[in-house]
Amino acid sequence: MRLTLPLKLVLAAALLVLYAPIAVLIAFSFNSGRRVSVWQGFSFDWYVRAASDARLLEAFGNSLAIAAMATVVATLLGTATAIALWRFAFRGKPLLFGLLGVPVVVPEICLGVALLAVFARTGLMTALPYPASLLPIALAHVAFAFPFVAIVVRARLAGFDPRLIEASRDLGAGEWATLTRVLLPLLRPAMVAGALLAFTLSLDDFVITFFTTGPGTTTFPVLVYSMVRFSVTPEINAASTVLIAVTLALAALAYRFQKPTP
């Protein structure tokens, strides 16, 4: 289909709506003045300010640590779930498959409240001192992120030729060698895609984190929220720009990592 003028306009409008706010945010992170709407000259001041804001740095580090932990666990758990659903016949399999979709479709706020209830009841939210207090948050993130991984991996498995597994066994590979040498390498693109999804879902999660964070612990989105309640400062712009850069770099990495496998 040819791109006619009206279509071009729609496309331009869509791109504008999608990217203009981000572009403005990035641009004003380099603004030398305090105002977020008037350009006053180029500078790295706000990056320096952000980098020396201990609270912001801590929250940023917390977010990365939580996302890293949640991603690793969610990827392993999601992949294992997908493989189990594909490989074995067992009672309640359709039920388990259905349940997998629940965290994906249930409104996040409900999941947040539910997790809050569990965490408050078990004392998980307040029992642990600071660095350890990130663990329950990561656990909450695993709970909502791993079904996404499982769904992505399962989609890849749907097109998988089971004869490849049999060929591997026939050539002398046991269950473990077949898993590590045939199944996992072929699932790698799906696992990378799932991991990236889990990472970004965790990194920018606000609702569930807000509900499961105890006093004295904060993550980047939660901190930004509390900061903007007073005012939007270019310092937040700078920190957000760094976050965007990190996510884009990861996406690029994942894309390159994924490419060579057919």
Binding site: R163, E166, A167, S168, L171, G172, A173, V182, L186, P262
Partner: peptide, 30 residues
């Protein structure tokens, strides 16, 4: 994997992520 017989599948079932030589080496490596 413990039987001294090998099967050539009708659909070939060549491992798509391994080169020709690595496909052939597979059964020896494992």
């Amino acid at each position: 994997e413990k039987r001294p017989v090998n099967l050539v599948f009708q659909s070939y079932a060549v491992f798509p992520h391994l080169s020709v030589a690595r496909n052939v080496a597979f059964g020896l490596e494992v």
